[in-house]
Simulated assay, not measured.
Amino acid sequence: MATETARSKRWLAHPFMSAIIAVSWLLLQQSFAVPQLITATVLALLLPRVLAGFLGPQVKVSSWATVVRFAGIVLWDIVVSNITVAKIVLNPAREPQPAWVPVSLDIRHPNGIALLATIITTTPGTVSCVIDEDRHEILVHALDCSDPAAMAQDIKNRYERPLREIFE
C-alpha cells in the first residue's frame, strides 16, 4: 500500500495515460500552437495524478507488438461489424437471430476483463451485459447469432487470447 501511495504521488504515475491525454487534447484542438502544447502538458501531468486513487496500479504491458496487432484486429472487426449490422437493419426481409452467449473467461486481470467487455460492447451487433466474477464468465447479447458456441470461441480467440498476452 505504501508503494502504491508513493507511486500515486509521482508526477507520471501513469505515463501511458498521460501520453494519451496529451495527444487527445492536441487532436481535439487540431492545433500544435504553444498554448495548446502547454495545456496538453498540464492536463497530462495533473489528471492522472489527481485520479490516481481511482485508476489503480499502472498496467505493465508485456508485448507491445501484440498491442499493435490487436488494435488492428479490433478496428477491422468494428468496420466489418458496422457493415454487417447495416445490412441487417436495411434489409427488411432479413430476420436476425438474437442470442445470449455465455463466454467463459480464462483471463483474470481486471483491466483485461474490463477491456474485453468494452471491445465487445464497442463492436456493433454485440453488447456485454454481465461479468460474472464467480463463474469467470461474461454474458454477451448478440444481435444476430446462429451458433452461440462458435461466437464464444471466436471472442476467446480474437480478443481474449491477445488480451492475456498483453496483461498476464
Rank of each mutant, 00 (worst) to 15 (best):
A71H: 02
W76V: 14
A117N: 09
K87E: 07
P96E: 14
W100C: 04
I107S: 02
S146Y: 14
G125E: 07
L115H: 04
C145F: 06
G112N: 03
L75M: 15
I120V: 13
T122G: 06
I73T: 10
L116E: 02
M151K: 14
A93C: 06
E137F: 07
I107V: 02
C129K: 08
T118V: 01
L116H: 00
T84V: 09
E137H: 00
P110L: 06
H109G: 02
H109S: 04
A71V: 15
I119T: 09
V130S: 04
T126G: 07
T122P: 04
C129H: 08
I78L: 09
I119C: 05
I107M: 03
A71D: 05
A93T: 14
L75S: 04
V89L: 15
D132W: 13
T118K: 11
I113L: 12
P148C: 00
I120G: 05
I131M: 12
D144E: 14
R108L: 09
C145K: 10
V80E: 11
S104H: 01
H141Q: 09
R108W: 03
A142N: 12
M151A: 07
I73N: 03
I119A: 02
L143T: 14
V103N: 06
A71N: 13
A86Q: 08
R135D: 11
R108T: 12
H136K: 15
V79F: 15
L139C: 02
